[in-house]
Amino acid sequence: MFTKPIHIKLFFLAVLIAALLLPLFISDAYMFQVVIMSILFAIATCAMNLIIGFTGQASLAHGAFFGIGAYGVAILTKAGVSFWLALPAAAVMAVLIGLPVGLISLRTRGHYFAIVTLCFGVIMWIVAGNWIELTGGENGIFGIAPPGDILVPLIGRIDFSSQAAQYYLALAFLLLTLWALYRIVYSVFGLTFMAVRNNEALADAVGINTFTTKLISFEAANFIAALAGGLYAIVIGAVSPSAAGYGLTFNFLIYLILGGIATLSGSVIGAFAIPILMESLQFLQDYQLLIFGALLVVVIIYFPMGFVGGLRRLNQIIADRRRRKKSEAVHVSG
C-alpha cells in the first residue's frame, strides 16, 4: 500500500551509513556541535511537521514545549535526578502541560489557533525569564552535567561525556522519531490526521473524532519536542529563556516549510540545510539576516512546497517529458 521505490530506499540507506560514519570525519569541535544541534532541531521540526504539516494545525507553542523539555531536564538533573529518568519525566511534563493548552486552543481554528498557541508560547517564554527561583531568570541554568554512563549488553559501558557519544545519542533519537512518524503517517490512523487537515467537516461525518485526533497529534508533537529540548540541555550544558522562546518556534517553522512541509525527509533536510546556510552567510556579518530574510521571502514565493516539494515537482516534470517522448516515438513509428 505505502511502499517507496527501491532507489529511494537505497538513498536513505546511504545517508544512514554516512551519518553513522560522520564522527570519523569531523575533527572541529565547533562544527561537530553544529551538527548535533541540527539533529536536535531536526527532531523538533519532525514533531512540528506532525501537528502543522500532517494535521494542518499551526501550533506556534512548539518552542515552548522544546523549552519545557530543556528546563525540565536542567532542573531535575540539578536536583540530582539521573538524566535517564529526567528526560522521559520532562517529556511527560510537556504532555501534561500540553493538555490544558490543547483543550483550550484546539477549540479555535486557523489563524485563531496559531495566535492562541503563540500566546502560550510567549507566556512560557516570559515565565522562563522571570521565575528566577525555578529557571534562573534571564541567566538560565548552567553547568548541566552530561548523562551518566549506561551499561549496554554486548557493547559495554558507554560514557556520554564525549561529543561523539552525544552525537550518537541524538542520532538514535532522530531515528526513533522518524521511525515512529513513519509508522503513524503511513497508516490508516495517520490518514485521519490528514483527513482533519484536508476536510474537517467530512472527517467528522465519516466517524472521526476530529478534536481527539488533533489533540493526539498535538500531544505527540509536544512529547517529541520536549525530548529534543531535554537532549539540548545536556548537549549545550546550559539553558536560557531563548531555549523556550518563540524565536525557536519560528526557526522550526522555517526549517519545516523550506525543507518541505508534510514530508518526513523535508523536516530533516530543512533542519540541516538552513543552519549551514546561515553559517555560510556568516561572512556577510550585519547583512546576514538581511539576506536571509529576503531569501526566505523569495523561496516561499517560488518554491512554496520547499526543497522536497521542489524535487518532487522536478521528478514529475522529467516523468512527464519521458512519457511525452515515448508517445511521440510511437507516433513517428506508427
Binding site: 500500500m1 490508516v188 490518514l191 490528514m194 484536508n198 476536510n199 467530512l202 472527517a203 465519516v206 472521526i208
Partner: peptide, 19 residues
C-alpha cells in the same frame, strides 16, 4: 466533499477507521 489532497484509496480507508 472529498479529501482532495489524498488518493482515492486513502479517501475510502478513512471512512472505515471508526469501525
Amino acid at each position: 466533499s472529498l479529501f482532495d489532497q489524498l488518493r482515492v484509496i486513502d479517501n475510502l480507508m478513512i471512512g472505515y477507521k471508526w469501525r
